[in-house]
C-alpha cells in the first residue's frame, strides 16, 4: 500500500513533466496547426543549458531560468526563420522538416557538450525527503516538481481564461482563419505562443536534470510519449493535455513498477523483468489506441 502511494506520486511527477511539454505542443498545434517534432529538442536544450549552468555556478535557482531562456530563445528563433514557412504546408512537410531539425539539434548538443550523459545534483534546499503521508517518506525534489507543475497549470488556466492574449489563443484554437480575418497581429501571437511553449519545454528539461541523465537524444523518447499525451487528450486542448499527461504518467509509472512483479507469478524472473519492461513501455500506446478507437478525436477535442 505504501509502495503504491509512492508510485502514484511518482506517476504524478512524471505526468507533470509530460504536461509541461504537452501544453506547449498542443497550443502550437491548436493555434498554428503545426506539428513540431523538434519540441523534444527544446526540452533537451533546456536540460543541457540548466545542467551546465548549475555545474558552472553551483546555483540551481540560476540554472532553471537559464534553461528556460535558452529553450525559449531557440524556439522563437527557429519559429521566425523556419517553422513560420511551414504553417500553410501539409502535416507531412511539417513532420519531415522538424525531423531534420531534430537531427541538427541532437548533433549540435553532441558537439557542444559531448555524448557522455551528464547528471545534475539535486540542490541542497530541495534534497532529503519528507513524510507527509504516515509511513511514506517522499523526496522533496519530486514534490517540488509536482508543485511547479500545479502552479504552471494554474497559471496557464489564468492566462488562457482571463487575459486578452488568452482570449486570442482560445479563439485561434477554435477558428484560426477567423482570428486572422478579424485583424489580429497573428505573427506576433504565433511567436509569443511558440516562445511560451518552448519555455515550458525548457522548464521541464531543466527540472528533470537531477532525476534523469542529461544526454543527446533524451528529447526523442519523451517526445513520443508527449504525442501520445496530446492525441489522447485531443489535439489543441490544454485541458486534454493535462488529463492525458496525468493518465500517461500514471499508467507508465505504475505498470513499470508493478507489472514485472505480477508477471513473476507466471514466468521466470528474468523473462518477467524484460517482458514487463517492454509491456510497460507499450502501455501508454495501448491506452492511446483504445482511446482513439472509442473517440477518434481524443478525450477533449478542441476544434469544433
Amino acid at each position: 500500500m505504501t509502495l503504491l502511494l509512492e508510485q502514484v506520486l511518482n506517476g504524478l511527477q512524471y505526468g507533470v513533466t509530460l504536461f509541461l511539454l504537452a501544453a506547449g505542443l498542443t497550443l502550437v498545434f491548436g493555434i498554428m496547426g503545426l506539428i513540431n517534432l523538434a519540441h523534444g529538442s527544446l526540452y533537451m536544450i533546456g536540460a543541457f543549458v540548466a545542467a551546465r549552468t548549475q555545474a558552472a555556478t553551483g546555483s540551481f535557482l540560476l540554472a532553471v531560468p537559464a534553461g528556460m531562456a535558452a529553450a525559449a530563445l531557440t524556439g522563437m528563433a527557429v519559429e521566425a526563420t523556419i517553422l513560420r514557412r511551414l504553417y500553410a504546408r501539409d502535416h507531412l512537410d511539417q513532420v519531415l522538416a522538424t525531423f531534420g531539425l531534430i537531427l541538427f539539434f541532437n548533433e549540435v548538443m553532441a558537439m557542444l557538450f559531448g555524448r557522455q550523459p551528464m547528471m545534475a545534483p539535486i540542490p541542497d534546499f530541495l534534497s532529503g525527503s519528507v513524510t507527509f503521508i504516515p509511513g511514506v517518506p517522499y523526496p522533496v525534489y519530486r514534490l517540488a516538481i509536482i508543485a511547479v507543475g500545479v502552479l504552471v497549470a494554474g497559471g496557464l488556466y489564468g492566462l488562457i481564461v482571463h487575459t486578452r492574449v488568452g482570449m486570442l489563443v482560445r479563439a485561434g484554437a477554435t477558428n484560426r482563419d477567423m482570428v486572422r480575418a478579424l485583424g489580429v497581429r497573428i505573427g506576433l501571437l504565433y511567436t509569443l505562443v511558440f516562445g511560451l511553449g518552448a519555455m515550458l519545454a525548457g522548464l521541464s528539461g531543466a527540472m528533470v536534470g537531477p532525476l534523469l541523465s542529461v544526454q543527446v537524444g533524451m528529447g526523442d523518447r519523451i517526445l513520443i510519449s508527449t504525442f501520445v499525451v496530446i492525441v489522447i487528450g485531443g489535439l489543441g486542448s490544454i485541458r486534454g493535455a493535462l488529463v492525458g499527461a496525468l493518465l500517461v504518467g500514471m499508467i507508465d509509472t505504475l505498470t513499470r513498477a508493478f507489472l514485472p512483479g505480477l508477471l513473476r507469478g507466471v514466468m521466470a524472473a528474468a523473462d518477467a523483468d524484460s517482458i514487463g519492461a517492454g509491456l510497460s513501455s507499450m502501455a501508454a500506446m495501448i491506452l492511446m489506441a483504445v482511446v482513439l478507437m472509442v473517440r477518434p478525436r481524443g478525450l477533449f477535442p478542441a476544434h469544433g
Binding site: 502535416h91 504525442f227 492525441v231 482513439l292
Partner: peptide, 11 residues
C-alpha cells in the same frame, strides 16, 4: 490527419 501520423508512429 495528424492523429493518423501519431497512431502509426505509436504502433
Amino acid at each position: 490527419g495528424v492523429s493518423f501520423i501519431m497512431i502509426t508512429l505509436a504502433f
